[in-house]
Design a protein around this nucleic acid. Structure first.
Lengths: 161, 161
DNA sequence: CCAAGTATCTCGCTCAGCGAGAGAATAAGG
DNA sequence: CCTTATTCTCTCGCTGAGCGAGATACTTGG
């Protein structure tokens, strides 16, 4: 147990990945704070923007499920976002029990103003890479992603999704 | 603004990075939940383990500052961790105002049981890489980390530190 | 010993999220 | 068409993380 610490360049990179995720998390938190929001609200906006970009409708229930909230929490979340003017509630015409949550265009712009430059910088970095280097980055990230997902499942946790 | 979506392989990788950070976050949350903890508590344990590995003492105040909590919140946090038996409060002999927070050995083992396999898998992945591929991964992660940190500072947010 | 400074803790509060269950709409069966 | 089960959202009351203010305990400098 003593020194799982100072190994070769591999562990250094793993540590760097952790530092990067922490920094990205802080970036989100700062964005949230600047706009009077909480981390959950930002996650919700991102999910809404993803859905919108994919041309899919997002209902209140689906949003809550994505974020791991129950119905009461979801209602409160959409209330907060609506109060800030970031989303609108729209009754679904086909199934009038459902409430569609639509992102306001200005909220989308707000998000891009904060995350766009970051994404742009990341793309820039990758544009200097050749095919093999891109494959290396892709392989590493995807491998870690799978490992995190698998180990979650393996340790006996079943989640909505 | 319309289709910032489906570009080349670069943007796909940026998306993959985001997916990976999300999955790592979920891994943490599952670990927290399994052990009756909250995300903040896990962050605290990680900070404590880092300090311990670096041979540094951690005081209550420093821990709170690292996590962005005020003194009241920090007290509550250490209370929770102490109640679960994960940390001990120890009065500092040199300055008896201070409370050193020490991680219990079993909490360290608990953490390694959950995060160790993940780290091991990541190291494995990297061991198949040559020097140029390692440099590519390192360069990308570090670049993104810097970009996130810079843009936080740039957008006019000053943090305790 | 006294005063100022620092580290932690206590108290009262706000608010995110939960559990339970109420309403409102749809779907299935007569 | 009417009844019953199901589905989606919202309301209510509660728990608990984290905050602001201030109390408390210790240290340092005069």
């Amino acid at each position: 147990m003593a020194d799982r610490a100072h190994q070769g360049p591999e562990l250094e990179i793993v540590h760097l990945l952790r530092a990067t995720t922490v920094e990205l998390g802080l970036h989100s938190v700062r964005f949230a704070h600047r706009n009077g929001m909480h981390p959950t609200d930002v996650r919700a906006l991102i999910a809404l923007m993803d859905a919108s970009r994919a041309g899919e409708e997002m209902t209140a229930g689906r949003l809550g499920a994505l974020l791991g909230l129950n119905s009461a929490g979801t209602t409160a979340l959409v209330d907060r976002l609506e109060r800030l003017g970031h989303v609108r509630r729209v009754r679904d015409g086909r199934d009038r029990r459902r409430v569609l949550v639509e992102v306001d265009e200005r909220a989308v712009e707000l998000g891009w103003a904060s995350f766009g430059p970051l994404i742009g910088r990341a793309v820039e970095l990758l544009q200097g890479y050749d095919e093999r280097e891109l494959a290396a980055v892709r392989g590493f990230l995807d491998g870690v992603r799978r490992a995190a997902a698998d180990h979650g499942a393996e340790t006996g946790h079943t989640d909505p999704g």
